[in-house]
Nucleic acid binder design. Structure first.
Lengths: 339, 339
DNA sequence: TTGTAGGCGTTATCAC
DNA sequence: GTGATAACGCCTACAA
């Protein structure tokens, strides 16, 4: 019924498989009449070359591995959306792995993707990853890697990120310009690239406007709202508590907002709040939270483009680059989540 | 460096590839000493069987295709999360396709997944799909299909869904029990399975409690908040406007809430609102919106389990089933999104 | 212009 | 207990 092969066509048309193969690929050295015959027959039988046979022969899978901490996360699912769009246009398929924020799982994922013989790897590091020898390893074996969002500079690859520095700078600048001086920064694990870049932007803005940097206003931690609660509460007990909060993530921002409301601190009248959000705020919370929006989908697209570029030019010498995509600061006047 | 094959091992150990193959697979008819030798050497060289060669030989890809309307949607990304978990445990990888709510894209996706020779297909129909001949087609070619969430009964397969009827019934029942009588139902396209099941639950609850059904209170439409706005506004102009809203989706619920707030209609004091939400409410909006929560991840897991079951028992006769997973009604007292 | 043969990595079958 | 061979589907030197 299905599963037509070149052999079937050859047999039916009394040709050799090589002739059929060549005809199908439009080789010039073939009789136009034969070519037509083959093409028509193939069309009629709905012939599709077997990608697995091709993979075996060409020693490539036309698949790219994607390792993310979590699929069920708005930033990453949007990024994957972008990756999928590019990959399928270029004839690659996308194999998804989740590290679940665990270093061990990430290492396993890398191994699995190698076992699957992916042509290249897109990865956003787990929050527990600081050692990247598992990546260096496969890179040495000739597998191209592109890191996105959560990157490492301990390995030379193409990197695609949001412009975290500028995003943090602009957000902090806005807070300062609206009169805030005690700006808390609630952020992620200190060893993560995104943490460092955002902290740098935050510090740079403070410095530029002559606002003193206070170590106590910077808090590192996990993602969940539960973990944020005590942090914010502790900040509120400071002799000189914050008059603004800059949260390095959507869940951090929501957790922060939650505590402030519990304490009847009105936002943004008594304290400002800006989130560095992975959330599609326009869709979910747009009229509410002031945010620095990351171009999740574009990051995915760009990363996929870069990776495919690397895959297809593997021989011709590679130059790695770091792409920074702009973020967007959106300031909301309202304190309501839905206005 | 890498890409060790059976041949390499055979050559190094002065054995034939067949012996190595057998040793590796732990065949009984092999000299224990030889076996040990091979195993050790393979271990040392970090030998991994080439899955592509295996696929070619066994005529299976150990991949399952997953077609969803959108990855960047909380319900589907959670479902994929569940699918991934099961699939990788069972040694399958997951190839993702998006239909973008387009029938044509969906048909293309099905074709692509066939060309990729997936061993089975998991699909949630696009909102534009009513004809399912593309699925019947591949099913006849022996490819197992499991439909989840958005299903069709025009084709005989295993189906995995939330118990939409009960969810809608319980939600409507709650609204009635709290004194509501004019309960609007804002829902999705009328031909979709989820729409019909939820409508049925809604009607059943009305009937059971003797509340008259009013056709005018049921509104079908698109997903976006922009599309909801005019619908709710129109409902408000009715001579006898709703005192409760039951929205068949997270974005529908948020859009609805948004309009009500604009009109200064307090929720739930002046009007109740329950959403049939795909959103992980516990994570994002939990203290806020009353919802019927769908077990997205479980749906994905169950669907994947059923599919793999079908794949691996393909020969031994199949019996299709429909799995309904329970939903959970969560009632929030507060009108605030974040309390 | 077309056909033959060999190989990609693996395993099953049949010899020895 | 081990080895040679063929086959999965495709492509491409090389031959004719």
């Amino acid at each position: 019924m299905d599963n037509v092969t070149i052999k079937d066509i050859a047999r039916a048309l009394n040709l050799s498989t090589s002739t059929v193969s060549r005809a199908l690929r439009g080789s010039y050295e073939i009789n136009p009449e034969t070519k037509r015959l083959v093409m028509e027959y193939a069309e009629r039988l709905n012939y599709r070359p077997n990608p697995i046979a091709l993979s075996l022969r060409e020693n490539r899978s036309r698949a790219i591995g994607v390792i993310v901490p979590q699929i069920a996360n708005y930033f990453f699912s949007q990024a994957i959306n972008g990756i999928e769009a590019i990959a399928y246009n270029r004839g690659y398929h996308v194999i998804i792995f989740q590290s679940h924020e665990s270093f061990e799982r990430e290492v396993t994922n890398v191994e699995q993707s190698m076992a699957r013989k992916v042509d290249g790897l897109l990865i956003s590091l787990s929050s527990q990853t600081s050692d990247v020898s598992h990546l260096r390893n496969i890179q040495q074996r000739g597998v191209p890697i592109v890191m996105f969002d959560r990157i490492s500079d301990e390995i030379e690859t193409t990197r695609v990120v949001a412009d975290n520095f500028s995003g943090a700078f602009v957000a902090t600048e806005h807070l300062i310009n609206t009169g805030r001086r005690r700006i808390a920064h609630i952020t992620t694990q200190p060893w993560m690239s995104i943490t460092q870049e955002r902290l740098a932007g935050y510090k740079a803005a403070l410095a530029q406007y002559g606002v003193p940097f206070d170590e106590e206003l910077v808090r590192y931690g996990g993602f969940s709202r539960e973990e944020v609660q005590p942090v914010v509460e502790d900040l509120l007990t400071l002799p000189n508590p914050p008059d603004a909060y800059f949260a390095a993530g959507d869940r951090l921002a929501l957790g922060c907002l939650s505590v402030l409301r519990q304490r009847h601190i009105s936002v943004p009248d008594q304290a400002s709040l800006i989130g560095f959000t992975n959330l599609n705020v326009a869709d979910m919370l747009s009229p509410a939270l002031s945010t620095v929006v990351q171009p999740a989908q574009e990051i995915g697209q760009t990363a996929a483009e870069c990776l495919i570029e690397l895959i297809e030019r593997k021989q011709k010498g590679v130059e790695f680059k770091t792409v920074k995509l702009p973020t967007q600061l959106i300031i909301r006047e309202s304190t309501e989540l839905i206005s």
